[in-house]
């Protein structure tokens, strides 16, 4: 469904992504694992178009979207959940969802606020609360719900567990698994391999802007060398 190949991205003179390559198949959950600064977030931002890659291919549903404007990429069915949540603090829960709303997509059961409140019951109880007056965990749920309002086929989740209390992280994992069960394709970026284990089918390990290892989660669990060298575990 998503195939990234030979992707290079620069920030000024810094060469962040260096020939990054990985694939995500329809219906699976894939995780980009790596330490802070390895290039996971930049990879996510390059895919959604917030950062313009210098070269390389990003095939989404067979079409090269590299270098397109973010709103066009989003409308083509890619959802992006940023790492620091970025809910609209002055807007209510309902208004936040409205910003994310896009037309229904062929072959997908369209998301509505009512359906999202079944997935995240907390949000349903605070429809008129401004995003800025919610706890970190509630904001994380809102930012995922907001992205789902765009009826994406694939969602990029950038470190959904970062900075959250362990008890919230558990709830988050359950919600993401529910989405996966609905058939949503997921690309996750994480440092927390413990969190990723419960969700992902496959992993790509990222180090200094390159994909250095790729395989199933089971194979990663068994590979102590990779875990020690790149994940500092």
């Amino acid at each position: 469904m998503l195939a990234v190949g030979g992707l290079n991205t620069h920030y000024g003179r810094a060469h962040i992504l260096q020939d990054m390559a990985f694939e995500v198949s329809a219906g699976e959950a894939m995780v980009l694992l790596g330490r802070n600064g390895a290039g996971k977030s930049t990879a996510m931002k390059s895919i959604i178009g917030l950062v313009r890659p210098t070269s390389g291919r990003i095939l989404f549903g067979g079409r090269d979207i590299a270098g397109e404007a973010p709103h066009r990429i989003a409308r083509s069915g890619l959802g992006y959940v940023p790492e620091d949540r970025r809910v609209f603090a002055d807007l209510t829960v309902m208004e936040n969802l409205e910003v994310g709303r896009q037309p229904a997509r062929e072959g997908l059961h369209p998301w509505t606020p009512a359906r999202l409140f079944e997935l995240f019951p907390n949000l349903g109880r605070m429809r008129d609360r401004p995003g800025g007056r919610m706890s970190g965990g509630e904001q994380q749920m809102l930012t995922i719900a907001r992205t789902l309002m765009g009826n994406p086929r694939l969602v990029l989740l950038d470190e959904p567990s970062e900075g959250l209390a362990p008890v919230i992280v558990q709830a988050m994992a359950e919600a993401i698994l529910a989405l996966k069960a609905e058939g949503l394709t997921i690309l996750l970026a994480e440092q927390n391999s413990h969190f990723a284990e419960g969700i992902a089918d496959r992993a790509t390990v990222v180090e200094k802007g390159r994909a250095v290892w790729s395989g199933t989660m089971a194979a990663l669990r068994a590979n102590d060398a990779v875990r020690a060298q790149y994940l500092a575990l």
Partner: peptide, 11 residues
Amino acid sequence: DEPTAGMAPAE
């Protein structure tokens, strides 16, 4: 204030 936010576990 959250001195290790954003660092790898070993760091």
